[in-house]
Design a protein around this nucleic acid. Structure first.
Length: 271
DNA sequence: ATCGCCTCCTGCGCGC
DNA sequence: TGCGCGCAGGAGGCGA
């Protein structure tokens, strides 16, 4: 159930094993992901070198000279590197084999993930074209967030989770960033001051960067490409901590639902 | 344009 | 122990 830090951790993990290597085989074991895995994927990939592995939002982008394979991990997806003769697991839906003998395996029990192919410039792809800025890029500023909030009726939490505003801030890090910046998750986006937008943007950048440093958050089943968990879970202040004491003031952390998503906050620290 | 709700799917933990 | 229920890290698509 990866958010940006988990996807970036995966990107960094697979890149050295994938970039510069030639794909020798593609096995689509189950094409029924969020969208059907394209039937011609093997034709586009086999015999070609993956030149680089990039990330835009939560999409992993594997480029060869003909175009780009886009992968999304959805809620339950993960990529694992394994030796060719290593036994496949249930829910290993797409297996990509390299000349090194290593396989890149997309494991995704809920199948909300995706594997797609595009020949066109990636920024023109329908799933990418209308996305907001990367949260860790310099163009994501407090001023930008403040402007994006003008006139918005939705809650600030749903606003920062909206990919058209800013990408990569998922359910865990939205709660955590709002805690760190002292903003109540239910506050209307349009009613937040410019200064507090600055603080929220700082918090988002800080939390995401620190989580990437820790290899992401393993809540229950996210594992990185080498099978290791991420270590940011122990750094979470409020997420999944209903009833526990706030690390800042000892008040009891509350859980509410916003936009069908669980939301955690401290009723004393967040206004 | 914006917002809120539904949906896709499997697995797990909980209460009875 | 078994069963039914609710919930889970995403996000496109729909109708209002």
């Amino acid at each position: 159930m990866p958010e940006l830090p988990e996807v970036e951790t995966t990107r960094r993990g697979i890149e050295p094993h994938v970039a510069g290597h030639t794909i020798t085989a593609v096995d689509i074991r189950n094409p029924n992901l969020r969208w059907p895995v394209p039937k011609n994927l093997a034709k586009k990939l086999c015999g070609e070198v993956i030149e680089r592995v990039e990330r835009r939002a939560k999409y992993l982008l594997l480029y060869n000279r003909k175009g780009c394979m886009m992968m999304h991990l959805g809620m339950s997806g993960s990529l694992r590197l394994a030796e060719r003769d290593h036994e496949l697991r249930k829910h290993d839906h797409v297996v990509i084999e390299f000349d090194s003998g290593k396989q890149l395996r997309l494991h995704d029990p809920r199948r909300f993930g995706a594997v797609l192919w595009t020949d066109a410039p990636i920024e023109e792809h329908a799933l990418i074209a209308h996305l907001g800025p990367e949260p860790l890029d310099d163009e994501f500023t407090g001023e930008y967030l403040f402007e994006s909030c003008r006139g918005r009726k939705s809650t600030i939490k749903q606003h920062v989770m909206n990919g058209k505003i800013v990408v990569g801030v998922g359910n865990i890090y939205a709660s955590e960033s709002l805690f760190l910046s002292g903003i109540h998750p239910k506050r209307q986006a349009g009613r937040i001051s410019a200064q507090r937008c600055d603080e929220l943007v700082d918090a988002i950048k800080k939390i995401l960067a620190e989580s990437i440093r820790q290899g992401g958050t393993t809540l229950k089943d996210f594992l990185r490409e080498n099978g290791e968990p991420g270590y940011f879970k122990q750094r979470l202040s409020v997420y999944d901590r209903k009833g526990e004491a706030c690390p800042a003031c000892e008040a009891e952390i509350r859980q509410i639902v916003l936009g069908q998503r669980s939301t955690f906050y401290c009723p004393h620290c967040q206004r």
